[in-house]
Amino acid sequence: MAAKKEAYYKSPAGSQVERTEQNGVITADKGLLRYARSVTVKVINASPILTEREKAILREAS
């Protein structure tokens, strides 16, 4: 039984009592999930901070 406990330990130290409180959820923006599906790690790592289009928009006079 002791071995089992070692094999499965979670929780911050000391909190052995199961807490049953419910937690809320904040869901992600649909666009982010779609974007993440469309790129690979390689593509992300090769990306610039700002693209030319973004630079141009930022420089436009308001």
Partner: peptide, 23 residues
């Protein structure tokens, strides 16, 4: 499920044993 239940981290260091026990 565990994280949703208590809002704390989940750490399992022996998935094969736990899975075999249905946990």
């Amino acid at each position: 499920v565990e994280v949703m239940r208590d809002g704390q981290f989940f750490l399992c260091s022996d998935i094969p044993s736990l899975a075999k026990e249905g946990r």
